[in-house]
């Protein structure tokens, strides 16, 4: 399978994403500049983290109008996997490909440290290599990761298993103390209704190798591979 890593002006995690796919998974991967308009021939798309357009106006607000985003929307509409990490998640929300919004962190601090994530749904295209309830250790680095959606949307996400990852303690308890940014219901990652567009604030791409001290992030990428290669059935 071939991967695309979309690069906007101000993206800064594209090298890490490229490295994980190329060197850890050993799969073909290409950068796609935000001014490109085509994603033909790719099997998975990564919107990496960073500060696209300097976070001007709102995080992701300007990137969502980049020429490539039309192709990303088409790619998603075709049921193919799209993962947005950190700023990529923010862009997917601004683009309306995922519901809700990310506010300033509660406490206003830019939070840069490891967190623990409880896998709430292990049957998605992005978590099928995880056990339900498994706790992943992955770092965050963001100032605006405070997930919000109106109560009806939160209720729907919860009822339909679309809250995929939640901030938790190392033991997997979902507590206020384990919530680094004030996200409603400790939400760290969600999928769309169809199950093929995923956004998460933590950075699995910098937690995918033993040499970096953390390997759990690799499960996210391996899940996408398993899903695309048809080893699991999941996309509704």
């Amino acid at each position: 399978m071939r991967w695309a890593v979309v690069v906007f002006p101000g993206t800064n995690c594209e090298l890490d994403c490229h490295h994980v796919v190329a060197d850890v998974l050993g799969q073909p991967v290409e950068y796609v500049w935000h001014k490109d308009t085509r994603l033909e021939g790719f099997d998975a798309v990564i919107l990496p983290g960073g500060f696209s357009y300097g976070d001007y106006l709102r995080t992701g607000a300007i990137a969502r109008f980049s020429p490539i985003m039309g192709a990303v929307a088409d790619f998603a509409a075709a049921g193919r996997p799209v993962i947005g990490i950190c700023n990529g998640f923010q862009i997917l929300l601004e683009a309306g490909l995922l519901p809700g919004a990310l506010r300033r962190n509660e406490g206003l601090k830019f939070r840069c440290h490891d967190v623990h994530l409880r896998v709430e749904n292990g049957a998605t295209a992005f978590t099928n290599r995880c056990r339900p309830g498994q706790v992943l250790r992955v770092p965050i680095k963001h100032g605006e990761g405070n997930y919000y959606a109106d109560p009806a949307t939160i209720d729907e996400l919860e009822r339909t298993g679309r809250v995929v990852l939640r901030y938790a303690t190392p033991e997997g308890a979902v507590t206020a103390e384990a919530n680094p940014n004030g996200s409603l219901n400790n939400i760290a990652g969600i999928v769309n209704e169809r199950g093929n567009v995923f956004g998460m604030m933590p950075h699995p791409e910098i937690a995918a190798e033993a040499i970096l001290g953390m390997e759990d992030g690799r499960l996210i990428f391996e899940s996408i591979v398993a899903s695309v290669e048809g080893r699991v059935a999941h996309v509704r």
Partner: peptide, 14 residues
């Protein structure tokens, strides 16, 4: 502005 009811951490700090 943020909608009424949406937590405003900056406003609270100010």
């Amino acid at each position: 502005t943020l909608k009424p009811g949406v937590l405003d951490p900056q406003g609270r700090a100010v």
